[in-house]
Design a protein around this nucleic acid. Structure first.
Lengths: 209, 209
DNA sequence: ATTACTAGGAATCGAGTAG
DNA sequence: TCTACTCGATTCCTAGTAA
């Protein structure tokens, strides 16, 4: 991770413009004025910072990079199992169609150990939960392989074994997902809403294994 | 910060040995097997990791480095501004004597922008606030330089610009402090107790800029 | 299979300096 | 003052390969 970006964050460049000369920046980070200048130019080209007369600010792109590192460190140091909480929302029914295809079902049975109820549960994450999605990347997914027919292709799916209220389920993330980062799709060997007596709008927590 | 160290942390090398070949490590971090090998050697020489037959583990030295970055990121993302709350206690009057010396006063004016009321406010921190003192270390202090006379020497002072009830003030920490970690000393361009109508025993919060 | 050495090409750094 | 360019020095990376 970039040490200049971290330094700027410390200085508050997340919320307000930070004024610092390349000379001072170099001195503080043990590099020459020239190198500091060059690195700022590069960060600007990469879109991670912007520079104006009032000073330097970190862009959303830059913050995202820092936030991902933060998420990783937090996961490691604060530890515990990853739990993601979201609100049940109505899907379009298409997820259910796909997962019930024999090409996927067979792999679910082989690799996860259950045949799934022919439908998916869509979970909408709150803003503060979305950061946890990055932590999923630290976990090696089970890969459900796609296939092709003459007419169309079915993509790979990343799958993470989970539990909801101590019952087995799985998070599935199509590699080429059509959802934003705020929606998670869950499959289970049963109808989650019926079995757990939940309805749209209720919150549930899945614990990633 | 070292990306290999971060990767190993993600893989759990903080608690147990992680087994990974230099080839795979290189592939995962977009570098050659040779570079991964070299970097592991360097990390081992620096004492940040240890390698055994069972795999790689991060040492305390390595964890310290990661923890520092974590602390910085946490401060920036979770913290908002650092606010320290304490109870006003009676000082010995000596702080007031020192800060009113011309050698210090001149620097206050030059570097902080105000001449201070000839007295310091002593703040006693509660146990749970004391941890915040460590976060001060992440902030670069303004350094008020000491000097020597024939008879004695006056030491350097670390100074942090602050606000109390939205009015300017400053935290001062003599480099060779005589206070414990539970006492903070504050200067301001006015008599804090009079202006803010506080008395000994009242609590105030200073917001570090 | 694995790790790590060498050699030379690529990238980075910083002194000098212009704008 | 400041930033950022050039260019020679240095460091870093990787292909080849040995162990």
């Amino acid at each position: 991770m970039d040490e200049i970006l971290l330094f700027l964050l410390k200085k508050g460049a997340k919320d307000s413009a930070v004024k610092i000369s390349t000379k001072d920046l170099g001195k503080l980070l043990c590099m020459s004025q020239q190198t500091a200048s060059k690195k700022l130019i590069d960060l600007e080209i990469e879109g991670k910072i912007t520079r104006t007369k009032t000073g330097i600010m970190i862009t959303n792109t830059g913050l995202e990079e820092l936030r991902e590192v933060y998420s990783n460190l937090k996961g490691a140091f604060e530890g515990g199992k990853l739990k993601i909480t979201g609100k049940i929302v109505e899907g379009l029914g298409e997820g259910g169609f796909y997962v019930s295809l024999e090409g996927y079902q067979k792999q679910f049975k082989d690799k996860v150990g259950f045949e799934t109820y022919p439908g998916t549960l869509n979970l909408k994450l709150k803003k503060e939960e979305m950061e946890k999605r990055f932590r999923l990347r630290e976990i090696d997914p089970i890969i459900i392989e796609g296939w092709k027919t003459k007419s169309r292709s079915y993509g790979d799916i990343f799958l993470y074994k989970c539990r909801v209220e101590n019952k087995p389920c799985a998070l599935i993330i199509p590699v080429r997902t059509h959802h934003g980062f705020d929606i998670l799709e869950i499959i289970a060997p049963f109808n989650v809403k019926d079995k757990l007596r939940k309805k749209n709008g209720d919150e549930i927590t899945v614990e990633v294994m």
